[in-house]
């Protein structure tokens, strides 16, 4: 028996919004410790990893490890039926071929349930090595989304250059060039408005706008985002999912032909 109840059901809705453009289908691996999803986008350029800790749920039970393969378009359609303040419960029997989503209004006066067919997905799981990144940039997630959107007007790629002076995002194309520099904030009223740069060595890497823009669909999940970079390894774009977990996107840097 698997059952996970989340009072802050809107978090699950936002997680789906954050992955559904990148992934058509994916497996949710349910274990005693929580729920994880790891999947590559169709073109195998990026990797998404979602981790939801068991302790983060208001009720969590997983008697046996369970892999739930889901069509994310269908899952998203079902979660759209939940109101933002609904309590969401996911439920499945051991070895089941369906999962049930239960939505309860805060007053408990309306309860809906939707059953969805599970899929058998043969997906490769990739081992992600522990990495000490040369640069870790924390910035407001809305700012990052804005930068990606604005620079996408100029070209297909964004160059992210991190140095001790700050971080510079650049793009170049037919209409010209764009540069956005962010310095580390010296003092801020709110922690989520801060730009914090932890740097061991300067790093400059180039990434595809298309993917960065898809990653920013996670913006509603968290006021801050972190970008981790090292030379010649994938960028990690990480958003926390409330207090219950995090979503990480990995994107290989572009290389010169």
């Amino acid at each position: 028996m698997f059952e996970a109840r989340l009072v802050q059901g809107s978090l699950l809705k936002k997680v789906l919004d954050a992955i559904k453009e990148l992934l058509n289908e994916a497996s949710w691996d349910c274990a005693d410790s929580g729920i994880q999803l790891q999947a590559m986008d169709n073109s195998h350029v990026s990797l998404v990893s979602v981790n939801l800790r068991a302790e983060g749920f208001d009720k969590y039970r997983c008697d046996r490890n369970l892999i739930m393969g889901m069509d994310l378009t269908s899952m998203s359609k079902i979660l759209k039926c939940a109101a933002n303040d609904d309590i969401i419960t996911m439920k499945a029997q051991d070895n089941a071929d369906t999962v049930t989503f239960i939505f309860e209004s805060p007053s408990q006066e309306k309860v809906s349930d939707y059953e969805m067919k599970l899929m058998n997905l043969d997906q490769d799981h990739l081992g992600i090595p522990e990495t000490d990144y040369a640069c870790v940039i924390k910035l407001p997630s809305g700012e990052f989304a804005r930068i990606c959107r604005d620079l996408s007007n100029f070209g297909e790629s964004i160059v992210i250059a991190c140095s001790k002076e700050g971080v510079k995002f650049s793009a170049a194309g037919d209409i010209g060039t764009g540069n956005i520099k962010l310095a580390q904030t010296s003092s801020v009223d709110k922690e989520e408005e801060a730009v914090i740069i932890e740097m061991q060595e300067p790093v400059t890497l180039t990434f595809a706008c298309r993917y960065l823009n898809m990653f920013t669909k996670a913006t509603p999940l968290s006021p801050q985002v972190s970008l981790s970079m090292s030379p010649d390894v994938p960028l990690v774009v990480e958003y926390s999912i409330g207090d219950i977990g995090q979503i990480q996107y990995f994107l290989a840097p572009k290389i010169d032909d």
């Binding site: 990739l126 081992g127 390894v233």
Partner: peptide, 14 residues
């Protein structure tokens, strides 16, 4: 021109 490598190049199957 730059090209986009696959994420497979960096992470091995576990």
């Amino acid at each position: 021109m730059s090209k986009q490598p696959s994420i497979f190049k960096f992470f091995s199957k576990s």
